[in-house]
Amino acid sequence: MTSAAMAGAKRRTGRSTGRILPILTVLLAIIAIWYAGAVWMNATWVRDQAARADTVLTTSELVRQTLMLERPVLPAPHQVAAGLWEGVAGQKITSKRSLVWHGWITLSATLAGFAIGTAAGILLAVGIVHNRAMDQSVMPWAVASQTVPILAIAPMVIVVFASMGVTGLLPKAMIAAWLSFFPVLVGMVKGLRTPDAMQLDLMHSWHASRAQQFWRLRLPSSLPYLFASLKVAIAAALVGTIVGELPAGATAGLGARLLSGSYYGQTVQIWAALFAAAMLAALLVMLIGALERLTLRRMGLAR
């Protein structure tokens, strides 16, 4: 072992012991800043109320009131947590006020779209690595399309579909599929191309057929890339679905919760929906991450 490698080993052991503490510290700092922000941003309103009622507030009274307003400018963390708990556990899950119900509407469209987009992306990628004409035709546009804000036109797609009488899960799933399609396509093409010339020559020297080459070399070596892009794709699919739920008229889904909250000034509701969406996103990405570790470990590729 060289000294550099040893220094690396030294650093690694130090890293694994202190991983949680820094994250907790930063999280605590964020919550503290959040509370301070809530007090600061809501103080004007509380002071105005007090002035109108001709009462003078002590500082502690002011702070207490800023953190329990019904429609605060910035709700305090505990208010959001309460709103989230109320939405998740305080309702029957079939209720229209249940975040579980709205979350399920969003999740089902996300998953449907993700499945379609991923399947299409993988199939097209396989076609592209095996057909030069397809590669040269499609790839430049696929890459260029990543610079176009496709997500921004999602609400419009919904409205157009609605004008044709198509509503519900399908249009949102289309957007989710479209958004997850490109990351998977680009990542998969890159992954299928990772085997270098030497590995391909080796396959060639064994007289492997194209199918054997694909199943035994290209596909396994593309999996790390596939999983990396699946994580991007599922997050994109979820964002797409939520944005697809924004147009006026939508009544179901986390996006609709955001919108109705913004119409009626229900800030706690907005934040609760936002956190529900964030947790859903984290859950989905972690799920793919777990799947990735499991698969790569079975293939002996895990690091």
């Binding site: 997050a235 939520i242 955001l258 913004s262 907005i270 936002l274 969406a277 996103a281």
Partner: peptide, 12 residues
């Protein structure tokens, strides 16, 4: 990885 666009109504 979060749907950050969701903060749009708040910031508006």
């Amino acid at each position: 990885a979060l749907p950050i666009v969701g903060i749009a109504p708040i910031l508006v």
